[in-house]
Design a protein around this nucleic acid. Structure first.
Lengths: 231, 231
DNA sequence: GTCTATAGTCGGATAGAC
DNA sequence: GTCTATCCGACTATAGAC
């Protein structure tokens, strides 16, 4: 009955990754304590004892799950980040470009990062990731360092550099970093306060249609905050 | 040894409220599942069995805790809310007042609400509350309705009305409500992503000094977003 | 109202056959 | 690598004396 998406009977029978996927789902939905190894093994069509075999313990599985998330996010935000960096260098080099045009390009790049962020936060596929990440923020566990180092530092840092350039500075000040956090917050709230959001907006869920409106609202705010002309 | 802040040996020996206080602490710090009735009873200098006696079950205690938080927040945000409402009515009535002055007053009221919110989120005393609330948002439990009805609906609605008036409308549009959520998000992020925040800013904790800077940054954003002249 | 003691349950980890 | 069976510890809830 309902043979699932994963078939652990593959050659090389990757039970290990099936366990990680199931773990992300479970840890995200129920939290670390409430999630049980039994349920995770069940969802992965694997045996409970294999968790110890592969990861040593429940905590080992959790760490592996968070690292896997960090990799996935890196793969997803990485391209945007690289694009931003190369584009930034190109802009630095083009000395002939007028300041105002340059600002608009920086602004576009910033919007691109925010959009990627918004899509990731609300995307169905990554819903479980987001839940895990939010939990990890509030009670940084043994997996936090890997997460922060691999993803957050890079993304936040890049946004801060863009904001700094928009403000005509060469490197980000404390005020710029604060601004970045308030920008991130404008998107993040739609995940962290999801329950209140859907009630307040009268939405049923947060789908592409809603995400579009969220992006639009945040773009509008950014343009005003940073003093950029915007349609 | 170490007789704590609370002395359950008071006349009327309010073990009940001691349990609620300890429960908020524990549920906030550890989450619902990880918090144990044994630890809660211990922290309250009470007997474990009394939890069943007073609240029926662990879940009963949790609901009581959330309701208590809702009451406390209500008591804290209530005065601001009432002030806002009476002030708003007064402004509606004063037909002679020029539009621009009126906008500035609305803006001030909005800032006041944001400030109250920011203080509450970062305040030491209410740290445990905030943790419980954030958790409850992500996985609305049996206590969510009471919470939303008593607090969030009122606060968000009030902010939305202020934003609507600032935009020259008589009642809040969907866009206004979205704006309100992005405003709330700008403050909320300092709680929900606390771990990343302190690293990114290079802070040790979030104390009054940092809160002041947060408020300042958000005020600046609000002024730009809503098109209000601001120092 | 408050206590002790314990029943009943469940989850994580391990031993050892295959 | 994967399985079954089981141990051990921890937690919630209850029974019942005071």
């Amino acid at each position: 009955m309902q043979d699932r998406d994963e078939d652990p009977r593959e050659p090389g029978g990757d039970t290990r990754s099936a366990l990680i996927r199931a773990a992300i789902e479970a840890f995200g939905r129920d939290g670390y304590e409430a999630a049980t190894t039994k349920a995770i093994a069940g969802a992965a069509n694997a045996n409970q004892a294999l968790i110890s075999y592969y990861f040593g313990s429940k905590e080992g599985l959790y760490v592996a799950a968070v690292e896997h998330i960090a990799d996935q996010i890196g793969a997803r935000m990485g391209p945007i980040g690289e694009c931003v960096e190369s584009e930034t260098r190109r802009l630095e080099a083009e000395l002939s470009m007028p300041v105002e045009d340059r600002r608009i390009r920086y602004f576009d790049l910033l919007c691109q990062m925010v959009d990627g962020f918004a899509e990731m936060l609300t995307d169905q596929e990554s819903a479980a990731w987001a839940q895990v990440l939010v939990r990890e923020q509030q009670q940084p566990g043994p997996a936090f360092d890997a997460l922060y180092g691999r993803v957050q530092e890079r993304v936040l840092g890049q946004m801060a550099r863009l904001v700094a350039r928009l403000n005509g500075e060469s490197s980000p000040s404390a005020a710029d970093r604060l601004t970045v956090l308030t920008i991130v917050g404008q998107v993040l709230v739609f995940r962290t306060a999801r329950a209140a959001v859907v009630r307040f907006m009268g939405w049923e869920t947060i789908r592409t249609q809603q995400v579009t409106r969220i992006k639009h609202a945040v773009h509008h705010n950014l343009a005003a905050m940073l003093g950029v002309e915007h349609e």
